[in-house]
Design a protein around this nucleic acid. Structure first.
Lengths: 200, 200
DNA sequence: CCTCAGGTACCGACCGGTCGGTATGCTCAT
DNA sequence: ATGAGCATACCGACCGGTCGGTACCTGAGG
């Protein structure tokens, strides 16, 4: 039947993600990847220049999706609380459906060479700054409490999500959206302005 | 396995931690470790049975310290909010002063063999359960909000700390205790009993 | 219709280098 | 002299990457 272009390279990436997540990048041999993908080394090196390229490809697609989600949500122009909620739920959802990618990403990003590390840092910084700007503006407008610096709040929120692969189980009792809501609740509680009649 | 702790074996572990944190466990050769520690392979294999033993030694000492702190704090028998605050500040402090150990730990724990993985999971579970029990009892007593499950709250709190090595810089503007306080503030805000009519 | 040139996708045996681990022996302190 | 504490030389397995080759498709020329 008409095989779609990229079917093979996608099988390779898929196998690589699974193995890297389970055993780590260095502990996984190229041979294991091609065996799991039912191809040979020739095929892998036909599509990818190196084992590192394979790793980078995994990051690229994950970061790309997350950045697109973030931009879309912020552009929607809701109020700060709603925006933060949407960001977190969306982030938890994509993280949950890409646990392996995220686990690999969190554990092995330090393996990137200088160039790629720089481009990765730039992307992450942009994500961080965009998120922080939302929180900061809401703090200035009095919509959020300023008790905790915007920076710290964002660091906490993103830290939680990055750590998610270590404990999230797809067959657990909570759906990703439910989890996202819970986490959003928690973060928003920390940002809720104290009301005049509330004693500290 | 490590025998008596002497100056040499400590130098070896110290060098290993630094290198593992900087380059990753697999990417670091034992030759690099012994060079950095100014000893030879003979010395390393005199004290440690394998490269993996070295890794495990790093975990053991870190987990040991953290469990001891936790037990001490809980045993002090303060009220829930104070206990949670102490736990988090103490955890952030030891994590900050052992950033390398924590980074290695978070990134490479999956490399443990079955036995050690089991013993590690047991320790972590005990930490988690102890922490959760504090939160849960306070929720039942009405001291904390039950809006978010105790489980999730603990997962968030520990997630933040585990992620800390990726962004914490010892030469940054905030001291570890200050950071610990900020994080504790944030977590406690999420656990503060809600007032009527609050809407997200 | 057939042929052949050229391009893409893939195969798999092989290589150079590396790395964890070991064998052996020396040197002190006890 | 005996064992702890190390040094040095070395090994065998393994791994990322290569490279000559194959199979198939496409399309132009005959």
């Amino acid at each position: 039947m008409a095989r779609r272009t990229g079917a093979t390279s996608e099988r390779i990436v898929g196998a690589a993600v699974r193995l890297f997540a389970a055993k780590g990048f260095d502990a996984t041999t190229v041979q294991e990847v091609v065996d799991a993908a039912s191809v040979t080394k020739g095929a892998l090196y036909h599509y990818f220049g190196s084992k590192d390229d394979l790793l980078f490809e995994i990051y690229r697609s994950l970061i790309g999706r997350q950045m697109a989600d973030l931009d879309r949500i912020v552009a929607a122009g809701h109020d700060a609380a709603t925006t933060v909620r949407h960001i977190l739920v969306s982030l938890v959802e994509t993280t949950a459906e890409s646990v392996d990618e995220t686990a690999v990403f969190v554990r092995e990003m330090h393996r990137l060479d200088a160039d790629r590390m720089a481009s990765f840092r730039a992307e992450r910084r942009r994500y961080h700054e965009t998120f922080r700007a939302v929180v900061e503006q809401a703090q200035e407008a009095g919509e959020f409490s300023s008790a905790v610096p915007a920076d710290t709040a964002v660091l906490i929120a993103l830290g939680v999500v990055n750590q998610l692969p270590t404990w999230y189980r797809p067959d657990g009792p909570k759906s990703p959206s439910r989890l996202g809501e819970e986490i959003a609740d928690f973060i928003l509680a920390g940002l809720r302005p104290e009301r005049p009649d509330v004693r500290a």
